[in-house]
């Protein structure tokens, strides 16, 4: 990078919990190297010194839930050479996409004392539904090693080494015994790798934080969950969390809409 201006980085927040942005600050050992490799020009979560665009790389956290969001993301795109979405909200609509399954008017009335002040869209949608996205990094939150890998790859002009296969492959590489074959329902077989199989390593089933893997057979997995004793409602809830609006998870949760729990 010597002799060249450092690439300018911006970090943007839309509807989200800030957890993915915190993953950047959580890169404690690598934070100085990051600040040397890029010029952090716009990162309000970390610094009030905000510089104007354009930016070489924009990291976008959060989903689009207001008309204002929808306008703002277009402006972000216009100022950004590369736009990378980080986390389940930005790539799939996040947990707040649960609103997509209900009546937003009723929800606002139930939550707010003065709902007339709330201006919001009926749905939570991912960034890619509004503007072109150069790379989507999964996770709730993102994995910091994967985040550094994406930034390093973009700086080097190479493809990020981010696998889109199942969690099972990283689970097996770690030598973890499959919890599902031992009787615990797990979303690992349909979930995008990246977390390093954290939950199975603690003998829990995967919760699907990284959203659908590249070729998810959610119907076959749901069938096996039922055979392991999960009620339709439990299957629906499993697919309706952080990535509820991701198409393969959405279809599978809807497939269990009208099924009553047995017994």
């Amino acid at each position: 990078m010597a002799g060249r201006a450092r690439p300018r980085l911006a970090v943007w927040k839309f509807a989200s919990c800030d957890g993915c942005q915190l993953s950047i600050l959580d890169c404690e050992d690598e934070l100085l190297a990051l600040a040397e490799a890029v010029h952090i020009a716009n990162f309000p979560e970390a610094s009030s010194a905000v510089e104007e665009g354009p930016y070489d790389i924009s990291l976008v956290e959060g989903s689009i839930i207001t008309a204002h969001d929808a306008e703002r993301i277009v402006k972000v795109r216009q100022q950004s050479r590369l736009l990378v979405t980080i986390g389940a909200c930005a790539t799939a609509g996040g947990i707040q996409a649960l609103r997509n399954f209900g009546d937003i008017g009723e929800m606002v009335a139930a939550v707010y004392a003065s709902p007339q002040y709330i201006s919001t869209l009926a749905t939570s949608t991912p960034i890619a539904a509004h503007v072109a996205v150069d790379f989507e990094l999964r996770g709730c939150p993102v994995d910091k090693a994967q985040l550094l890998e994406v930034i390093s790859a973009l700086l080097a002009g190479r493809k990020p080494a981010i696998a889109a296969h199942s969690v099972c492959i990283e689970c097996k590489r770690r030598g973890i015994t499959c919890v599902m074959v031992q009787g615990t329902p797990c979303l690992g077989p349909v979930t995008h790798a990246g977390c390093g199989a954290i939950c199975p390593s603690f003998r829990r089933g995967c919760y699907g934080c990284f959203g659908p893997m590249e070729t998810p057979n959610t119907a076959a997995l749901a069938g096996q969950w039922r055979r392991l004793g999960a009620a339709p409602r439990e299957v629906q809830r499993a697919f309706r969390t952080f990535n509820a609006a991701a198409e393969p998870f959405l279809r599978q949760s809807q497939a269990h809409d009208d099924q009553d729990d047995p017994g």
Partner: peptide, 25 residues
């Protein structure tokens, strides 16, 4: 499920992928 478990546990399956990583600097 195309999850790959069968190939991971198979004692003869040998396929690998190669990843290149570079650092921030």
């Amino acid at each position: 499920l195309s999850c790959g478990n069968c190939t991971m546990v198979c004692p003869t399956c040998f396929c690998t992928t190669v990843e290149d990583h570079s650092d921030l600097a």
